[in-house]
Design a protein around this nucleic acid. Structure first.
Lengths: 104, 104
DNA sequence: TCGACACATAAGCACGTGCTTATGTGTTGC
DNA sequence: GCAACACATAAGCACGTGCTTATGTGTCGA
């Protein structure tokens, strides 16, 4: 199940931090490590998990590999979340309408 | 981190199925087990995880414990997801701005 | 009060996860 | 070509997770 991969990937705080960094713009693996006390293999493994979940996609550029947010992953969460629209508080009802629209 | 608990809870397919059942209306632990080849302790443990994540809340009724979706949990995912609005499809983003204005 | 019921908790076990160190693969510049 | 670099992969290990069986806790009806 793709949803399982997505939620598993996001269940790790380090991976969520990496994902949030990428949301600010595409970065290569080394740049992602900056200020993040994490080894190179660990980062590589985390990126592989995020990529496998469809949350991130990569692009080779010379000897660097550039990572960026994959909108499809975000959209998957949105469609999943849209199923529980009935339980959303009024305050973010507008957002729920939005996600419902994405679902079609 | 509460987000960690939420995503961890939803990373399990059985728990997502339970959550979806509850989205259709509140049920007690035994009713949740119907048609779900799962032991009583396993269900109890899954419900404890969902409850700990704030996705579900309980209510004692006699010797039954009624479970229901907790809107706060859903809202948490919504607000997290909202941070990545920039990566939603263009068409959706425009509508999001519109709805945001309407909401104020 | 006592047995049946609904559910929670404890302990043990198989398997998964995230880290480490070590090494492999592909690219760049000299 | 070859050394340096950027990243991936492999293997091993500590710890977490989800199941099981066994037992505890609270409630109900007779």
């Amino acid at each position: 199940m793709i949803e399982t991969d997505i939620f598993k990937a996001l269940a790790d705080p380090t991976r969520r931090k990496v994902f949030e960094k990428l949301a600010g713009g595409s970065l290569n693996a080394s740049a992602l490590r900056d200020g993040m006390e994490i080894s190179q293999p660990a980062m590589s493994q985390h990126l592989a998990v995020l990529r496998g979940a469809g949350l991130v996609r990569e692009q080779r550029q010379g000897r660097f590999v550039n990572y960026e947010v994959d909108p499809d992953g975000i959209a998957s969460i949105g469609t999943w979340l849209a199923r529980y629209r009935a339980y959303w508080p009024k305050r973010i009802e507008a957002l729920a309408d939005l996600l419902k629209d994405m679902d079609q």
